[in-house]
Simulated scan of single mutants.
Amino acid sequence: MSNKSDIYDVIVIGAGIEGSSTAYQLAKSGKNTLLLEQFPLPHSRGSSHGQSRITRKAYGPQEFYTNMMEESYRIQDELQAECGEQLFVNCGCLVFGPKGHPFVADTEKCLKRHGAPHEKFGVDEQRKRYPKLSLPSDYELVLDKTGGMLRADKMLQAFQRQFQRYGGTLRDGEPMLDLYPGDIVSIKTTKGVHRAKSVVLALGAWAAKFLPRIGVNVPLEPLKITVCYWEEKNGNHYSIENFPVFMSESGEGNNTIYGLPSEEYPGLVKICLHHGPKIDPDNRDAVDNEWVLDTIKMIIRTHFPTLEKEPSVVETCIYTNTPDTDFVLDVHPSWKNVVIAAGFSGHGFKLAPVVGKVLAQLATGQRPSYDMSHFKIDRFFKNKL
């Protein structure tokens, strides 16, 4: 028989970046918290592994994210101070595309409105600064000087370590089998039953499989993202000392690319397509992603002619997209002590520090610090009877 002392304040399911950040915030505020992870840690089967992610302030029309990024940077700095490790490299974030393209124009407008240091320039200036990048003469570029690279795996481990230092309990290699709602929520795993006053479900791509079982049919689409590293033919022009992180929308189909200068593999630049085939997260290798590689190779030949034509290293990651690419951060429609975090759509990592704070507020019955209307579950069903 379990007694009252066996009841946690909060159980967080999923020790990816969003779940780990949430657990950290809860333990730091004195809550008795259990963080459960289905796989042995560290693992590379979800969305939070790998050594690097882009971070930036500008968010075009979705300015509510820019507002949240202010605090995300602050919490990230606090975590950096607590763990004594560099988690952020401020090398800048370069956005480029055809003149008048909304992605570039909206980035510039957003940076202006928020007073963030930035520069806008044309291809003549680009050729002086970044001579190995080959862009058409009608392209324009905006450099967000607040942007840069997050050391992703270090940040994930820092959240988990600090969570435990604040008294939290982390159990990995323990998949959830079922959830039983009530004033006290019970979580059945492969190793037993855990109970808590509230639960946060940060399930990553597995949310698409589990949430329908508890009556939440959010339209989630897991995608396999092909992460490619390309070798420079000569020189060190794309090193983190010489080149910023970057993003570009060419306007042709789903050809949004993102890239990070060479650091995690010396001499290899990370350049990826921001899109991929739909998958089942438990069977990700069953899909054909040759078209992704063909598309990205064409972009490398066109815009990065001093990189080798074939990638040296190819890894995979999972995005879980919502139809509007905004997150789901909400409580269950019937059980207010079951909090749902899902659909981070390939841009959640940089916001994880502040997302963790908001989810911790939802899990403890506090009013969230931000307008949550963009993140509600019911936004997908408003037009239905």
Rank of each mutant, 00 (worst) to 15 (best):
P212D: 03
F210R: 11
D178N: 14
I187M: 04
S186R: 11
K224F: 04
M176Y: 05
G204T: 00
G204M: 07
K191P: 05
D172K: 08
F210C: 08
I184A: 01
L179Y: 04
L211M: 11
G192N: 06
V216T: 09
S186E: 13
P181V: 02
T190K: 13
K197V: 05
D178G: 14
Y180S: 05
H194S: 14
A196T: 04
K197C: 12
I225P: 05
K224L: 15
P219L: 03
I184K: 08
K209V: 03
T190D: 12
V199D: 01
A207D: 00
S186H: 13
P212S: 03
S186C: 11
T189I: 12
N217S: 11
A208G: 08
R213H: 13
D183V: 09
I225A: 12
P212G: 04
P219R: 05
L220V: 06
S198Q: 05
S198C: 01
T189F: 08
R195G: 01
K191R: 15
G204R: 06
A207P: 00
V193Q: 13
V216I: 10
P212Q: 08
S186T: 10
V193S: 12
I187D: 00
P181A: 06
R195W: 03
E221F: 07
I184R: 10
L211R: 10
L201K: 08
P219H: 04
Y180N: 11
D183K: 15
D178A: 15
L223R: 15
V185A: 03
N217R: 14
V218N: 07
L211E: 01
G215I: 04
K209D: 06
G192H: 10
V218F: 02
D183G: 14
V200C: 10
L177C: 08
V199R: 07
E221A: 13
T189W: 07
W206E: 00
A202L: 12
P219S: 06
K209T: 02
V185G: 00
W206M: 02
D183S: 14
S186V: 06
V185W: 00
A202H: 09
L211C: 08
R195L: 11
G182F: 01
R195Y: 07
A207S: 15
P175H: 08
H194N: 15
W206T: 05
D178R: 15
D172W: 03
G192T: 09
A205K: 11
T190E: 14
S186G: 13
E174Y: 10
I225R: 13
K224N: 07
V200A: 04
L179P: 00
V216C: 10
R195H: 14
A205R: 10
P212Y: 02
V218E: 03
V199K: 14
K188C: 06
G204C: 02
K197E: 09
P222T: 00
K191D: 14
A196L: 00
R213W: 10
